[in-house]
Design a protein around this nucleic acid. Sequence first.
DNA 1: TTGAAAGCGCTAACAA
DNA 2: TTGTTAGCGCTTTCAA
Lengths: 331, 331
Amino acid sequence: MAVTIKDVAELAGVSTATVSRVINNEKGIKQVTRSRVLEAISKSGYRVNTIARSLKTRRSKTIGLITPEIANDFFMNIARGTEEHLEKSGYSLIICNTNESVNEEARRAELLIEKSVDGVIIIPSSNSGSHFKILTDAGIPVVFADRLTEDFEADSVVVDNQKGVYLAVSYLLARDCNNIAFIGGSSELSNARERYKGYLQALEEFNIRKDDSLVLIGDFHVDSGFKLMKKIMELQTPPEQVFIANDFMHMGAIKYLIANGYKPDNSPRIGSFDDLELSSILGYASVTVAQPVKEIGSKAAELLIKRIEGDRSKPYKTVQLQTDLKISRMR
Amino acid sequence: MAVTIKDVAELAGVSTATVSRVINNEKGIKQVTRSRVLEAISKSGYRVNTIARSLKTRRSKTIGLITPEIANDFFMNIARGTEEHLEKSGYSLIICNTNESVNEEARRAELLIEKSVDGVIIIPSSNSGSHFKILTDAGIPVVFADRLTEDFEADSVVVDNQKGVYLAVSYLLARDCNNIAFIGGSSELSNARERYKGYLQALEEFNIRKDDSLVLIGDFHVDSGFKLMKKIMELQTPPEQVFIANDFMHMGAIKYLIANGYKPDNSPRIGSFDDLELSSILGYASVTVAQPVKEIGSKAAELLIKRIEGDRSKPYKTVQLQTDLKISRMR
DNA sequence: TTGAAAGCGCTAACAA
DNA sequence: TTGTTAGCGCTTTCAA
């Protein structure tokens, strides 16, 4: 049986209330008493029982992260930002993997309520978020990260996807090229939609008619990048540039090119969203829209803690982080 | 204020004890009573408060994962395996990032005790594990994953590192080559040591004298792979093969080769531990020792749950998973 | 500046 | 088969 506040109280010859006060660093305690308690604590090897504390205070100092995938570099960089920030404020992180399933999202939300988490950060796996209402109904604040849903509003941290792509594509258009394919993601994802908008916006600005055969929609996974790049290379005249809307599809596309003997100088240049370790070194890259991934996570944590510890009634707040255009090289 | 077991009891016209029994699916309850309670539960929107339950039962149904890094593909694949397994058994996962710092490891262990986790899975960041003793002292079972420590014993799940490398290197030696460099990791890490042993074992078997200029030790990160590959290519006569002991250094090495214009046919072939998405496609790879990453995590979870729910006094158990040798192609 | 005591929501003897 | 009740370890009034 572990040592409790009661043991400490006896040892120090004070009441449990006093021990509690010392633990919580309250003031209005005589210095002598405090040090007597502190000594009893270290002598006895006392450790708070946060479960008991939570039951009383109704705060678990734990927050949940609902993510479509746990073994995913991008999401886990968000998680890292979150964890670091929370850590500083004394919160722990429960990670829930949903495998991109809405059902799982709902189940995990339920579970997190039962765990009495103080707040939840969600990277939604689709457009629908109404199943997260149970969280706010239970009084648990929610922050969306990276993506938004269409039917549920909350605080959120996203990147300016449209602008990022717009700047990249128009950079390319302003140079040699007016022939840019686009490999995008499902319209189920807000960020995929925004990125596509950025592409269209750039075309429009340069008075270029959208060519439907150059717009391909994948699912943000490696395989689909591979397949769609194949489609592009099988066009009668492949474009000079291909803009790919996320890193995994980018990876797949490069795999296709390499596997089929397309060297950087006899294949389209690749513009992309997200940094990809090897890509620029391989020599296919033209431009890259880099996003502040960790910051998405830390900012989300910041927003969430503000909600938890501060005013919950304020209007929802959306933080939009800016991307960074990196020029690799042109043809 | 959330609805409690008491509210449900009143609504159903039974005692709280009965409600508790229904919630916990105990038998020996009249069918009528059970359904009346169930109805009251769904009508009232009752949800268990696991905090209160934990305080009473002294089980939090939560386990901690202490990992050197959270945004790391390898570790998070372990985490994924763990999460999936735990999920099925009704446990949640608190993830703690230690940034490869022993101090942080100790801090996080402390924190996890306060959180009353039922068990902890640790991917240690070094040889020393004595600071984890506080966990077992507090009655919390521990399982090491991927690596072992020298001064603290516990259940563990590792891969047969030595054999994996031994098989790979001797495969190479049995073919054309007797000229294999080795890029390894710090002797602070048990897996790095084992892999090196495997290299030595293979050399010995083929009666090849170890050439110290061909053994380079890095830190398992990308940069060090880059630098060490550079060193190798600057040798008077670079070796025919280089075996690289982890995926990040492998990545770094390939980066170096590409950045410096070494094509697959004018550079050493690369044998490696861990699969690397692009490597075999790029054409540098000779052999790869693939490890069952997710399984490390799920097996660790399995062991841990057994300890938690079963006998704690049995001798420590080490599960050694086997690797898989993948032949890419020879020169 | 300190202590007594109630109670957070649940489970588990024990009694009926 | 069900109910009564004590209590898990803590915080927090309220009173002293």
